[in-house]
């Protein structure tokens, strides 16, 4: 009867397999850090709020915003995993256009306000215009 042969040395994973494993580990670390950050932020926020006599409505607002941030983060993650490269590229262009619009608007408005030409920069207006520019850039790149 033949005895059991010594098992061969474990196969060295291919470069592709190692890269996939590396990406899995990297994604896992990022996700765990995000969850940990959210939990720590939630606890710190709750403790701080409790010490300052926060009302029920304020606590609900804090929880609502936290849920919104988590939902938006998860939604973005799934969205960017599902879309094709044309849409991804359109999103990159939208981000680039948006950040440039924000930079120009904020710096320009702040400088004019500092010079006394205009009133102080309005964050809501800058946010709205930035979103409009980003959406326009996205729609142009996606459907041109």
């Amino acid at each position: 009867m033949m005895g059991k042969t010594m098992s061969a040395e474990p196969e060295t994973p291919s470069g592709e397999a190692r890269l996939k494993a590396y990406h899995r580990r990297y994604t896992g670390i990022i996700v765990r850090l995000m969850i940990a950050g959210g939990l720590i932020g939630g606890v710190v926020g709750a403790v701080t709020a409790a010490g300052e006599g926060t009302t029920l409505a304020q606590a609900a607002a804090i929880i609502g915003v936290a849920l919104f941030v988590i939902a938006a983060g998860l939604g973005s993650y799934h969205y960017f995993r599902a879309v094709d490269e044309l849409e991804l590229e359109a999103n990159k262009w939208a981000g680039l256009a948006g950040i440039n619009a924000y930079l120009l608007l904020y710096v320009g408005w702040r400088f004019l306000a500092w010079s006394g030409v205009t009133a102080n920069a309005n964050g809501d207006v800058i946010f709205g215009i930035t979103m409009l520019v980003a959406c326009a850039a996205f729609l142009y790149r996606r459907f041109r």
């Binding site: 094709d84 490269e85 044309l86 849409e87 590229e89 996606r142 459907f143 041109r144």
Partner: peptide
Amino acid sequence: LDVSRQAVNAIETGKYDPS
């Protein structure tokens, strides 16, 4: 190709180079 129809159209019309 597992992409959107718009992606195919953009490639065909020369508006987008595929990865």
